[in-house]
Design a protein around this nucleic acid. Structure first.
Lengths: 226, 226
DNA sequence: GATACACTTTGATACACACCATCGAAACGG
DNA sequence: CCGTTTCGATGGTGTGTATCAAAGTGTATC
């Protein structure tokens, strides 16, 4: 199963290792709390920092001329966001779930002169991002609506799911409109896909934000509904 | 107008500057001719090199479990391809138009220890790639078929177009199926979109591969056809 | 507890695009 | 020269998803 969200770094390399590692260069990075609704940066802002999510959930968005919005990615703990294009950020980034981020100076990525560990780490994050986005291409271009929603749930389960009585429980902190804008669908289509998964007893909803995966296998091949 | 193909490097910094620059590190890069049909790498291959296109046209593809193919990008002169995910390539890459590529050792990107000029250049190419792919997201997810085709023609015109009696001429070396797989459409839909643009006198076809842009303005807002 | 608002869900309809089939043109090989 | 193949273009049909509309659910406010 490939990852369609922004990519997590090597899981064996815990975020805290970095955040609390001895600082070899002054001002290389700093941990910082962020609250819901706060914008880390806007599209067009000069890019001073790159951020690694320590906890919480970020949303990266972009707006088309016609006003339609695309959610580029949801950034979960371990993800790195804010890779600049030239000198500026090319997406908006705001906070959906409060948490902490580690900010790195842009130079930590762009120059090999600083801490080589951080440099390599950020670089690998950028490369993983490219790979993950290519996966996302496949999904946007080639999957049906139910397949997209099922894939999304699978990825969220893999990354944020908790076990609970033999089943996996997922919390979806984002709104249906965010999911729709992430998958290239409408809100209604997302709802319907979820409803059909529910009626097929593949998933169950505790509430609108909380999904229980009842049948992982069928969720994987969720193209064949009804 | 944003770029939906793989991203060109700074145009003022000609490819040849690098290719023929004094080599400060042995084995840093090598120029090499590639012929039509040749594969530079396959998905899953161990990634030894990163390639910059000097001339010709490359195609990056990926295949879904169900067999459907996605063209991730067409790589034109100035583009860099083959950014690894971990140790392996995550796309296929083959040659659509013969030309020359400059191959760099993967270390030239991943380690800051080598030639810093090359390192920075490859890194910036990777960052531009991320930005360009985000643009491509917008197109795949949010644009209609005619808009996608029009955008594609605009980008090709911008990058490869030649002027000819007041109009821009574009050569499309790839097949309709490649364009379709790039845009997330079917061959038929691409053909029909082109036909409608032609009947609306926005473009003209010299032959199937050669497009003349008759009305740039209307091509930009090509949602409103008929 | 009543009202208001935001969000989710469900229903009905329309249409864009996929799918299937056909045909013409060009390229190729015997 | 003519069969074969490949590619592009076009027509007809079906369906998945967008769109429009409205009801349902939860949460905050007074």
């Amino acid at each position: 199963m490939y990852v369609t969200l922004a990519n997590h770094l090597d899981e064996h390399h815990d975020v805290c290792d970095i955040a609390e590692a001895p600082v070899s260069q002054a001002q290389v990075h700093a941990r910082r709390a962020v609250s819901v609704g706060h914008h880390l940066f806007h599209e067009g802002d000069e890019a001073h920092n790159i951020y690694e999510v320590a906890s919480g959930l970020l949303r990266l968005t972009r707006v088309l001329e016609n006003g339609s919005r695309q959610v580029i990615a949801f950034a979960l703990p371990g993800d790195v966001v804010g890779f600049p294009d030239g000198d500026v950020h090319h997406t908006d980034c705001d906070v959906l779930v409060a948490g902490e981020v580690i900010s790195y100076r842009r130079q930590a990525l762009e120059s090999g002169a600083g801490d080589p560990t951080v440099h390599t780490r950020l670089l690998q994050a950028a490369l993983k991002e490219i790979s993950g986005m290519q996966d996302h291409f496949m999904m946007l271009a080639r999957k049906s609506a139910p397949e997209k929603v099922a894939s999304f749930l699978m990825v969220m389960a893999e990354r944020t799911g908790t076990f609970d009585g033999g089943h996996t429980r997922i919390v979806l902190p984002m709104k249906r409109s965010d999911i729709a804008d992430f998958l290239g669908l409408t809100i209604e289509t997302v709802c319907r896909a979820i409803t059909r998964l529910r009626k097929a007893r593949i998933i169950a909803l505790e509430d609108a934000q909380t999904v229980i995966i009842l049948d992982n296998n069928r969720l994987e091949n969720a193209a064949l509904l009804d």
